[in-house]
Amino acid sequence: MPDLDKLMSLPGALASFEFNDRGELKESRIAEGSNLNDTVLDLVCHMCIANISIATMQARGWESMTGAQGFYPINGFTLMGLEWSAVATGSHGVIMKNGEADYEAAYAALAE
């Protein structure tokens, strides 16, 4: 299971969080000086779980229509905002500054 403190050591990390399968925030870490809070993180969690569900439907449909493989099961969703990115799997996520974000490292850390 990913460690929230370890996720905070990713370059540019502003917050890390854990959520349940309904998208409700369970636990979080927020970098000092950040204007993020648990209310915002809870919304981000719901957003991540909603988009993973939609992408799962798309992956199922795409694979059955095209015969292509490799999309299902969806194991991550990333939102790219103007300055920050949120990377999440089905239970954990991390928010990073775009300029420093290492998406590969984030997915690797979330897969632990």
Binding site: I54, M57, Q58, R60, G61, W62, S64, M65
Partner: peptide
């Protein structure tokens, strides 16, 4: 958008 995808799939 979701209805379009349902039709498509």
């Amino acid at each position: 958008g979701n209805a379009d995808q349902l039709s498509m799939f």
